[in-house]
Design a protein around this nucleic acid. Structure first.
Lengths: 129, 129
DNA sequence: GCTATATATGTGCATCTGCGCATGAATCGT
DNA sequence: ACGATTCATGCGCAGATGCACATATATAGC
């Protein structure tokens, strides 16, 4: 688990000292873990489509599952994950739960998701023609 | 696989017609799949740390593995994934491969990664404090 | 209170993922 | 040419993930 061949390569670009100076500038494992989990939550097509739908309108679980063509169970399980990361919120009215997009910073992403495919070059690196 | 309980819930918020009108506004499965894979590439702590490092300076695989405390194999496999999505690029000089950050749209994200933990509220929703 | 409905959760399974090990491919030094 | 070194890749395994099925919880209607 901690066995890396750190002593093998001697032709380092950044030798010893400079390499050590870089270390504190790089995100620690825990910090990276937390951030990665957030991306992982977005790294599922069904969850992206759920967010896409909830970005348009508030929906109950049943409507959502019907709209996306997934089972209620699947919808509920995905919503639980999205709740964990504060990406969606819900209000309970009777026995139904109305979900809505909570993380407004995702709005731009979701708008891009609705565009025609073939434009995912670098998410910001447009070569202007 | 296609068995959803679409006829169970009758108390839809958006009844029939409106639900159908929503459908074309939601990203299709293929489009969502492509986009999700991109997030998935970022959904690994090691890959985030690799990008974090390459955002600071160009590095060979060996330095990178030493810097992050991972094996050369792991580094190489992650770099392959990041290459697939055009997030990193490399130039070959002799037997070494110098990798650098290619997707500049990730710069902001990586800068945020270097900040102290506890600020991952909404990735863009700063309360100007 | 009982039944039906809407949502949430526990369990099991097929699949995916990240890693280590061994190996292949390319390059440098002698 | 030969061995050493740097990077890439095939393979197998442990752990994670998404889903279906069954079930639990909560609410509405009677």
């Amino acid at each position: 688990m901690g066995e890396r061949d750190e002593g093998t390569c001697e032709a380092r670009v950044v030798h010893g000292a400079r390499l050590a100076a870089l270390q504190p500038l790089i995100a620690g494992e825990e910090r990276a873990q937390v951030e990665a989990e957030r991306f992982r939550a977005l790294g599922d097509p069904t969850r992206l489509r759920i967010l896409c739908a909830l970005g348009l309108t508030e929906l109950c679980v049943c409507d959502l599952s019907g709209l996306l063509g997934i089972t209620q169970t699947a919808a509920s399980q995905h919503l639980k994950i999205l709740r964990t990361f504060g990406m969606v919120r819900y209000r309970k009215q009777g026995r139904m739960a109305f979900y809505r997009l909570a993380d407004l910073s995702l709005t731009g992403l979701l708008a891009r998701l609705r565009e025609a495919p073939g434009r995912e070059e670098a998410a910001g690196e447009r070569q202007s023609g």
